[in-house]
Write a protein that binds this DNA or RNA. Sequence first.
DNA 1: TATGGACCTTCCCATGATTGGAAGGTCAAG
DNA 2: CTTGACCTTCCAATCATGGGAAGGTCCATA
Lengths: 141, 141
Amino acid sequence: MMNIGEAAAASGVSAKMIRYYEETGLIPPAGRTSSGYRTYGPKEVQILRFVRRARDLGFPMEKVADLLALWRDRSRASADVKHLAEAQVQALEARIREMQEMKAALQHLVHSCAGDQRPDCPILDDLGGHMASAGLSAMAR
Amino acid sequence: MMNIGEAAAASGVSAKMIRYYEETGLIPPAGRTSSGYRTYGPKEVQILRFVRRARDLGFPMEKVADLLALWRDRSRASADVKHLAEAQVQALEARIREMQEMKAALQHLVHSCAGDQRPDCPILDDLGGHMASAGLSAMAR
DNA sequence: TATGGACCTTCCCATGATTGGAAGGTCAAG
DNA sequence: CTTGACCTTCCAATCATGGGAAGGTCCATA
């Protein structure tokens, strides 16, 4: 049995976040010693690592909760899990695409800027431009 | 002269955010009518559009403030602006790379999952795995 | 001129995930 | 027995944004 600090070190989740996950119900309340310290065993650490890894993979907390439920449910079909993961891949793809569009637009501006001592700068001209800038403005951020 | 609602419509920045930008000092305080309404002219709307566009391009607020300062400074060199924009391109590239790594890791898992009725699922196996998962865990999110 | 509705004002709250700190209790080693 | 490193709870801040309440203003129409 470990205390919260050891569990944090073993799982890669900070003690602060472990308490937060418990408070929000993502993970079940930890056991307590007679003096009130939280206790964690290997199983709990594994759950924490699960959460950590899923967060690393970009799953929002809500989806992590879904994954945890599937993980705990021995009878679930792997198709359910695969579906969640595929949705997450698509969410990542969408965000990547968005950011690539931003980058392309910005690079275009960078390339058209002399970058010397003169004050003329197409980048600022574009940013302050009088046109509606409808294209990029439509991008949800 | 427009009121805040008209300025919001003309700039694409919500009234809420206009007040917030003013409060945080990103933009100077707007003029007021005798009854306390904020007033905006074409110049102010242009500034708001500038902010909006820069945010669309992924600039964090802090960098937007830098860009605004350069914009207002008639004597600045275009190199300064270009430098900021290049840094932003690199920041975007780094984030894109991170997310592509996440996506690749997740796709790898998806491909190795049968996705049928059986409960065996490499995705969950990996997430809860006993290994340290050092590689991806090192990725800052 | 009164009234209604669409606007404005300020103020507070919530989000999501995380970090920080203060005040106080506990544990283990010296 | 003291010291320092841990633990506990509670409260606050972050960042950019949205939601809403309570109250004032503006304007068109009845």
